[in-house]
């Protein structure tokens, strides 16, 4: 019976192809996970090996690159820059989250005539080129200074303008999502039970959308903390940020020292995220 033999063989062939496909699929997934994590992992490894260079395979184990840091940080400009960056990221996070919350509230609760256009404008900084944000704001600040007849110095506040601008869409998104998830009749219920409008917002709405608020804040904080190109154009002589310093260290310092600084930074950022996740459950809105 040639035909049944043929079909049996073709089924076996199909199974083979399907098995190969599923192994290939699994391999691709793991390869992609390795691709995503390996640049972070090798930085950590290099920070603990003995050589001052990024030699591979790593030789020995030492904490030398870390213990030498306290003497170097001030000299490398890391200390000051870290302070500026944290301050800036916190300020950016707060301003963006407050503005974003108001806008998200308006979008979710009210109907606007050109709703889609409005939403598009509000989230467009998401894909607006960062380099253009930096350059055009600098030209804008210059022009405004010209018109007013004064020189506007680049400082913390000019940086903050740029950082608020490009981080805004993230809180709008996360807070909008958390507002959509809950029923606004809860506010009415609170008011029916005797709460004033203000109390019902502060005691009912804000706690309910807290995860959205917090993840919006964390997003804005991290994006601001890591921002290079916008800061390049807008930072003044006394407001050099951490990414700017890291960029110059890329060329000007021993790889192992940079690896140690980078590892500490990664640990810092990741612990902020874990603490926020533990306290507020921000991952639902990431």
């Amino acid at each position: 019976m040639a035909t049944s033999d043929d079909s049996a063989r073709s089924i076996r062939f199909d199974q083979l192809v399907s098995r190969a496909g599923s192994i290939g699929y699994r391999a691709l997934i793991w390869a992609t996970i390795v691709f995503l994590l390996s640049p972070l992992v090798v930085v950590v490894i290099i920070s603990f090996q003995e050589s001052a260079y990024a030699t591979w395979p790593p030789q020995g184990f030492t904490l030398e690159h870390y213990t030498a840091l306290p003497n170097q940080l001030g000299f490398l400009g890391v200390e000051e820059a870290l302070f500026v960056s944290v301050e800036l990221a916190v300020a950016t996070g707060i301003v963006s989250t407050v503005l974003g919350a108001l806008a998200a509230f308006a979008i979710v609760r009210y109907d606007f005539k050109y709703q889609t256009t409005l939403e598009t404008i509000l989230i467009s900084p998401l894909i607006y080129p960062w380099i253009v944000v930096g350059l055009s704001l600098l030209l804008f600040i210059n022009r405004v200074g010209d018109i007013l007849g004064l020189t506007i110095e680049l400082n913390f506040w000019t940086l903050l303008l740029g950082h608020v601008m490009f981080t805004l869409p993230y809180p709008i998104r996360t807070i909008g999502a958390s507002l959509q998830n809950y029923d606004d009749s809860l506010e009415e219920a609170a008011q029916n039970l005797g709460a004033t409008e203000l109390e019902s917002y502060l005691r009912v709405t804000v706690p309910l959308i807290q995860p959205g608020l917090m993840s919006g804040f964390v997003f804005a904080f991290i994006l601001s903390f890591n921002q290079y190109i916008v800061s390049l154009f807008l930072s003044g002589p006394e407001t050099t940020t951490m990414p700017l310093v890291l960029f110059s260290l890329f060329y000007n310092t021993a790889p192992a020292t940079l690896a140690a600084i980078a590892t500490l930074l990664m640990a810092g950022v990741l612990s902020v995220i874990f603490v926020m996740e533990y306290l507020f459950g921000i991952s639902d809105f990431m």
Binding site: P39, L40, V43, A54, W56, I222, Y228, L246, M266
Partner: peptide, 14 residues
């Protein structure tokens, strides 16, 4: 969540 310079540095090592 990691600085772009740090990620580039990781690729430099690799």
């Amino acid at each position: 969540t990691i600085d772009l310079v740090v990620r580039s540095f990781g690729w430099f090592i690799l």
